[in-house]
Design a protein around this nucleic acid. Sequence first.
DNA 1: CGGTATCCTTGGTGATACTG
DNA 2: CAGTATCACCAAGGATACCG
Lengths: 139, 139
Amino acid sequence: MPTMTAAQQRARAKADYDAFMADCPSRKLLDRVSDKWVALVLEALGGDDSQVMRYSELSRKLAGVSQKMLTQTLRSLERDGLLTRHVTPTVPVTVHYELTELGLSLHQVMREIKAWAEMHMDEVLSNREEYDKQIASGV
Amino acid sequence: MPTMTAAQQRARAKADYDAFMADCPSRKLLDRVSDKWVALVLEALGGDDSQVMRYSELSRKLAGVSQKMLTQTLRSLERDGLLTRHVTPTVPVTVHYELTELGLSLHQVMREIKAWAEMHMDEVLSNREEYDKQIASGV
DNA sequence: CGGTATCCTTGGTGATACTG
DNA sequence: CAGTATCACCAAGGATACCG
């Protein structure tokens, strides 16, 4: 016999815990940064051999990315001051992207995520296999 | 199999898995790991004071999360071997969640991102302001 | 070349109700 | 307590076409 409806409980919980959820200053930024395209763009531009890349180069390197997502990600990163966009008025136009110092500092951290994903892929895959096997036998 | 240094493992892993490739499994893993609920669960379970938490504790700590998303996230992390689920057959049943070593290793990386976000929040915000101002004047 | 605009699918997400 | 099941919504993301 509930004293509150689910909606009321939820509303109360949200009010009480907004400090953890939304009030954390880093929360929104964390959300924005926790994006696979962000990670890949930073990784692409943070490489020792490719600190400056053209739009088409990025598009090629990030296999499977749509123009929409690439442009959207680049704009977002530019707005946050993580990279700069240089337009050279040739014909056709040439555009270069380059990480700022701020972007480079994030790259140092983000590359660990990508490295972690690649490094522990085998372990995760075998864990999944094990888990699925146990579920199958359990049912 | 000879033991490898961390650097060697990293090099080998990079050769096998490349998140820049669209069809590489590590691309999916990167995407999965870049999830807000994953980040929050890892953060919750990675704290010094809360390495073991019950479902209801997590639910309370991550205020605003729906049961569906919490369960879904926990199952996914369990399947990938990032955390373990312990069921104590009390009445009513008690369930504890705890990060594995693998989960802790990811948490170490994730908390660096959180630290970065906190440290550079002001800079990003002022960059946005500047950017939006220029866009506004440009139009 | 480096985008923007548009449409459209799909699955992530939340709300609600029910159960062992 | 700790889930599962179901429905419904809407925005993220992809495909396509067009433009400066």
